[in-house]
Computed example of a mutant assay.
Amino acid sequence: MTPFKLKIITPEKTFFSGDTTQIIAKTTMGNVGILHGHVPYVANLVSSPILIEVDGELKEAALSGGFLKVSPDDVVVVTYAIEWADEIDVARAERSKQNAEERMKRHESQKEFDRAEKKLKRALNRLLVAGRKH
Rank of each mutant, 00 (worst) to 15 (best):
I88S: 04
A85N: 08
H107P: 12
Q110P: 03
Y41I: 08
T27F: 11
Q22P: 00
V70R: 02
E12W: 07
I34P: 00
K118H: 13
E53P: 00
V78S: 14
R126I: 01
A116P: 15
S48K: 04
I9V: 15
N125F: 01
V129E: 00
P3H: 10
F113N: 02
K119F: 08
N125M: 03
N44S: 11
S71I: 09
T28K: 13
I8G: 00
P3R: 06
P40F: 04
Y41S: 05
K121E: 14
L124G: 02
E94N: 10
P40R: 09
E57T: 12
Q110C: 04
K97E: 11
E57I: 11
P49W: 06
I8H: 01
E102S: 09
E94R: 14
I50M: 11
F16T: 01
I82G: 03
A100R: 05
T20S: 00
A61P: 06
T28S: 15
H36I: 05
S71Y: 06
R122L: 09
T21W: 00
P72V: 02
E112R: 11
E12I: 11
N125Y: 03
A85W: 02
K13R: 15
E83A: 10
P11M: 05
M104Q: 14
K111D: 06
S17E: 15
D55F: 03
A61F: 08
L6T: 01
T20F: 00
S48D: 13
G56K: 05
G56H: 06
R106K: 11
A62H: 03
K59F: 03
S64M: 15
L45E: 04
V46T: 08
H36G: 05
S64L: 11
E94H: 07
V77K: 03
K111I: 12
E94A: 05
T21A: 00
P40Q: 09
G37Y: 03
V54R: 03
T79F: 03
T79S: 14
V90N: 07
V77N: 04
I23P: 00
I24Y: 00
T28C: 06
P3L: 03
E83F: 05
R106G: 12
M29W: 07
E117R: 15
S71A: 09
M104C: 11
I8E: 01
G18R: 10
R95S: 06
Y80P: 04
